[in-house]
Design a protein around this nucleic acid. Structure first.
Lengths: 211, 211
DNA sequence: TTGAGATATTTTGTATACAAATTTAAAAAA
DNA sequence: TTTTTTAAATTTGTATACAAAATATCTCAA
């Protein structure tokens, strides 16, 4: 089962996979030797990857030594939403000119189709995935490297949050129309509309009870 | 000169010091052994600290191996400003209730006094430091851990940028009044005013020519 | 049976070691 | 002199090793 890896980038990627797939439960400590044996690398590269993931807010340093998959409180999830609501409108605004290329419009439509398919088949996991893909696509398109970087951290956190079933879209039926509205605004270049809508869009997808 | 260190947190801190003080020139490669000898620790903790600082955008991975102190382009500086302009209003809004405690108002005034002193004595480095302290204070006060975390990364980057003399306040005389306006709005709870002003405040402090 | 204390085991954190890769320096050719 | 080739010396990346700390296990008493 252990696949030998080359660069550390890959170790980070594999760890992210293991975390967002739930292969690494957030209940138990992430053991360095275990990962090390599974990936066929010594502990050193594993530790470095874990350190990076900790700075990204995906792993959490334990009180005295060791790491955990991060557990998110309602407060933290709300904070993520607020940051998204503040940053995504900027990225979307910047992505507008790039949507003049037909190639990009096609790609965006393809993602919306995936979203549609997932909703029609009631596949919540796929809905979450396509939802994330939609937003990442526009952020990548924006060309804003800082927002992209911040977002890639948030995306990993969202993957964990979605996985843990805390993601409860108000109504699956609303997901596609909402994204279509965003798409229309983007294609029309309706900046004010975007500012208004993205905040609402990003936000109330979450119903957080605990904490 | 080598001071023995305990935890890695301290290694990160020492590295940050060395970077933001300019002790580590951004021209040359950051040599692991050199740092390791200077701090009296082996290369392993140094590498881990460097990895973390790379995720934070303070160090930069070289093309094939090794690290550099990050060099910021005009585009990147503008991106930092835009993100600040988007996130700080949120944090400031949340900090308002905490400013009802006299203790916090006193602390805020103290920072403004430092700012005033630095301006009066034409100490640009100190102005930058106090300016940063002002913003960090409010962000800390907000209680928003995510914004705090994002900001602590940006702060390190700002320290480097300031250090490299790219920070050219339009006019030193404007710095104190501008912060006083912000303070008044915070104490009055003028949320709309803040949204408007913080963006302008954070932004045009930079005159970026290159790139 | 339950709880405290002591002992054994695991797990982390850091040092040392070594091979692969990269950079620097030197030598040779144009 | 300038460029290209070759060789030496750094420097990184990862493995192994070991001590300190933390966790789990066991023993014995209440």
């Amino acid at each position: 089962m252990s696949v030998t890896l080359k660069s550390e980038e890959t170790v980070v990627d594999r760890l992210v996979d293991m975390i967002s797939s739930g292969e690494l439960s957030r209940a138990e400590r992430v053991r360095e030797v275990e990962i090390s044996e599974r990936l066929g690398v010594s502990r050193i590269p594993i530790r470095e990857a874990m350190g990076r993931l900790e700075s990204q807010g995906v792993l959490e340093a334990r009180e005295r030594g060791g790491m955990n998959v991060k557990a998110f409180s309602a407060k933290q999830i709300n904070e993520i939403c607020r940051v998204r609501a503040a940053l995504e409108p900027i990225a979307m605004r910047d992505s507008i000119p790039h949507l003049e290329l037909q190639e990009n419009r096609i790609a965006l439509n393809a993602i919306i189709e995936e979203l549609k398919w997932a909703v029609d088949h009631n596949r919540r996991g796929e809905v979450a995935r396509a939802d994330i893909a939609f937003h990442r696509f526009l952020i990548d398109l924006s060309g804003n490297d800082l927002i992209r970087k911040i977002w890639s951290g948030l995306e990993l956190q969202l993957r964990i949050i979605f996985r843990l079933e805390l993601y409860i879209p108000t109504n699956l039926d609303e997901v596609v129309p909402k994204h279509l509205v965003l798409k229309d605004m983007l294609l029309r270049g309706d900046v004010e509309g975007l500012d208004q809508t993205v905040s609402d869009h990003v936000w109330p997808e979450f119903r957080v009870a605990e904490d």
